[in-house]
């Protein structure tokens, strides 16, 4: 796989949100307005880039058994840095992201890429992978927030749209609208890709705790 493909796969073929279905919590929560969605995308991309580079550089040093705690500590460190930068330079963004900014720590995309890509690949490839995945995450958030802000608030990036702003469907910016738009977007992606990417089950494969999750499902079934 060359570097260009490596970058592009994160955007479309393996889009972390719409195809791999990782990081659903921030996707649903911060997409009420385009500006906060882009802010979230940028913050998560910054953390992902730093963590992928460092984890890839340390991949031969970190013992396999304690890798997940190590990754979490590294990621938490970078999230704290981003948190302080956002607080200092973009207080309005800090306000609109609120609790979801520190929660980047437990965003499955970041831990998932560390586990699936960075601990097996070279530093430069991991950095490109992080940029691609970050861009894919931001793109998905941007699409979703555009739909929700235009329909729910009658505006886009804060600019009012003449007719729509008088006839806004406010449910779109509320919780049910988030689930609905996300579901429909994934269905559209499935349709376009003719079900090539669609999985029968949820995209647990990218989740670091997928093993345990599958085990818990399996054991429950055996118990019956």
């Amino acid at each position: 796989m060359n570097k260009r493909q490596n970058f592009l796969k994160g955007l479309i073929k393996e889009n972390p949100v719409l195809v791999l279905v990782l990081g659903t919590c921030p996707t649903l929560a911060v997409t009420t307005s385009v500006s906060s969605a882009i802010g979230m995308g940028a913050a998560a991309t910054a953390v992902l880039l730093c963590s992928n580079i460092v984890i890839s550089a340390l991949r031969n040093i970190i013992p396999d058994k304690v890798r997940i705690p190590c990754y979490i500590v590294l990621i938490a460190g970078f999230v704290t840095m981003v948190q302080m930068l956002v607080k200092a330079f973009a207080p309005a963004l800090d306000e609109s992201l609120g609790i979801y900014l520190p929660l980047i720590v437990v965003n499955c995309i970041i831990l998932g890429r560390a586990e699936m890509f960075a601990n097996k690949n070279k530093v430069i490839d991991s950095a490109i992978d992080a940029l691609g995945m970050g861009a894919g995450f931001t793109l998905a958030l941007f699409m979703m927030s555009s739909i929700r802000e235009i329909l729910g608030n009658g505006s886009w990036m804060g600019f009012e749209i003449p007719i729509l702003s008088d006839n806004s469907i406010s449910i779109m910016t509320m919780a049910p609208g988030g689930f609905l738009v996300f579901g429909i977007l994934i269905a559209v992606v499935n349709k376009i890709s003719h079900g090539k990417n669609s999985k029968k089950n949820f995209g647990c494969a990218g989740c670091p705790s997928a093993d345990i999750c599958a085990k818990s499902n399996g054991e429950q079934e055996e118990a019956k």
Partner: peptide, 22 residues
């Protein structure tokens, strides 16, 4: 519908469930 199978229809159902909590 085929495109909605799996996750999409689950999310739409979640949307309606969360509507009830509103």
């Amino acid at each position: 519908p085929k495109a909605f199978q799996g996750l999409p229809i689950t999310l739409v159902a979640a949307s309606i469930t969360s509507l009830s909590f509103l």
